[in-house]
């Protein structure tokens, strides 16, 4: 464990899930693995909170679920982005960039 893990700021989990699913359809476990991997193990997703988020996103119509077969030949629930999910991802990315830039600016000038 090289770096210290940090908990996700409120509201960013949705963005991360959408971003992860933007690459390819995934099942829940793979999503959490993927987030940790890409963030070089810095971000820790509380696994228990991943699934409620997935179900919430599904209800909003940003992702949809379908049952498929996993790499080890098991039945797994795969999630993929819908058209409106892709739009939402773009919108949230823009908002996030603005936010981080603004925060960085504040921190830089202070």
């Amino acid at each position: 464990m090289t770096a210290q893990r940090i908990d996700l700021p409120q509201g960013t989990l949705d963005l991360l899930i959408l971003r992860t699913l933007g690459l390819q359809p995934q099942h829940g476990w793979a999503i959490s693995e993927r987030i940790q991997q890409i963030s070089s193990d810095v971000l820790r997703v509380q696994q228990g909170s991943l699934y409620p988020a997935l179900h919430r996103l599904e209800r909003r119509g940003w992702i949809k679920a379908r049952w498929g077969t996993s790499d080890n030949n098991r039945r797994a629930k795969y999630y993929e982005l819908t058209k409106s999910g892709r739009r939402q991802l773009e919108a949230e990315k823009v908002a996030w960039d603005k936010l981080t830039a603004a925060v960085a600016q504040v921190l830089g000038t202070a």
């Binding site: 228990g48 909170s49 699934y51 409620p52 179900h55 919430r56 599904e58 209800r59």
Partner: peptide
Amino acid sequence: AKEECRDAR
């Protein structure tokens, strides 16, 4: 987690 999923749905 299950309860939260149900809520989320």
